[in-house]
Simulated scan of single mutants.
Amino acid sequence: MKAVVLAAGEGTRLRPLTEDTPKAMVEVSGKPLLTHCFEQLLDLDTDVEEFVVVVGYRKQDIIEHYDDEFRDVPITYTHQREQKGLAHALLTAEEHIDDDFMLMLGDNVFRANLGDVVRRQQEHRTDAAFLVEEVPYEEAGRYGVCDTNDYGEIVEVVEKPEDPPSNLVMTGFYTFSPAIFHAAKLVQPSNRGEYELSEAVDLLIRSGRTIDAIRMDGWRVDVGYPEDREEAEQRLSGKAEADVDSAASS
């Protein structure tokens, strides 16, 4: 499968780390976020045929760092000229995708069961499968919130709702069929003025497409603020888990 990685963001909330660095190149434990994404994708059972990386802010920094391959896997770059949301960014990759593909947001650090998402879509031949995570209800409104039926299928996705229908949220790793591109073209700007990926997903659902939700086993950190970077580094070093174990035994 090909893997699309969205890495066009400026990362204004990560300042001062992004004053002269694109968000995807912010280092966590000595590696850029984008390198963590590539490594997680290469660790899957499914071979990555090609990375399609969507760049934008300070794109040349990313292109010069990675050039045209990562660990012998070719990289194709597409350019999101304006920051108009994730659905808008995804559409820049359409011409390079002709089959089912993986999608990862380039600001996440994962140590989780990503391979289960790929296997579920391949085995069930659904139009999409998402890795989802339960969060406290008071935090759910920060994310794309999913509502599921008794079969574990997603029946609704709402972007950053004031009154979340559940506490199950999208994590930033997905598999899609090419049907997502048609849905993304139908998306209208949200109240934030962006073309939301969650709205494209909701259009897929309303058209009768099936989307499976796979609950996360492991952890992920969405690196949106400087303190998130610190949390990711602690988790990668094992310190966060050690602190939990210590608290549980005391």
Rank of each mutant, 00 (worst) to 15 (best):
V145S: 03
D147C: 04
S166Y: 11
I154H: 01
F173V: 10
G106I: 06
L103E: 09
H124W: 11
L103D: 05
R120E: 14
R125N: 14
K160G: 03
E156V: 03
G141S: 14
G106E: 06
M170Q: 14
E156S: 13
R120Y: 06
A112L: 14
K160A: 14
R142N: 09
Q121G: 02
Y151N: 15
V155S: 09
V118A: 02
P161V: 04
V109K: 02
T126Y: 13
M102E: 08
Y151H: 13
D150C: 05
E159K: 13
Y143M: 02
C146G: 06
V157R: 04
Q121L: 13
R142M: 05
F173R: 01
F110M: 11
P164S: 06
Y137V: 08
V135W: 00
S166F: 12
D127E: 15
V145I: 06
E123V: 12
V155R: 10
L103M: 11
F110E: 09
E159F: 08
E162G: 09
G106L: 08
M170P: 09
N113L: 07
T126H: 05
H124Q: 15
V169D: 00
E162I: 07
M104W: 01
L168W: 02
R119L: 14
L114I: 10
G152T: 13
G115M: 02
E134W: 09
Q122V: 09
V155W: 01
F173H: 02
Y151K: 12
Y143T: 02
L105M: 13
V117R: 03
F173Q: 04
H124C: 10
V109L: 04
P136L: 01
A112W: 08
D147Q: 15
D150F: 12
T171F: 10
D163C: 01
N149V: 13
R142P: 00
K160N: 13
R119H: 15
Q122R: 14
V158D: 05
S166E: 13
V169P: 00
G144A: 15
P164T: 11
Y151I: 06
D107E: 10
T148Y: 09
G172I: 02
D127F: 09
A128K: 02
R142A: 10
V117K: 01
L105T: 06
F130C: 08
V118M: 02
Q121M: 15
F110Y: 15
L105F: 07
L131H: 08
Y143K: 01
F130P: 03
A129K: 01
F110D: 10
E159Y: 13
F101L: 10
E156R: 12
V145C: 04
V157Y: 01
N108Q: 03
E133N: 10
M104K: 06
M102K: 02
V155I: 15
E123R: 12
L168F: 10
D127M: 03
G106W: 08
P165V: 01
V158W: 02
L168D: 04
D107S: 03
R125I: 10
Q121F: 11
P136E: 03
G115N: 13
I154G: 00
A140W: 00
V135I: 09
D163Q: 06
P136V: 03
E134L: 08
A129G: 05
V155K: 05
M102Y: 08
A128G: 12
V155G: 04
Y151L: 14
L131Y: 11
A140T: 04
M104Y: 01
E159H: 14
G172D: 07
D116V: 11
V169N: 01
T171Q: 13
E153K: 04
V135Y: 00
N113F: 05
F110K: 03
E156F: 07
F101K: 04
Y137F: 14
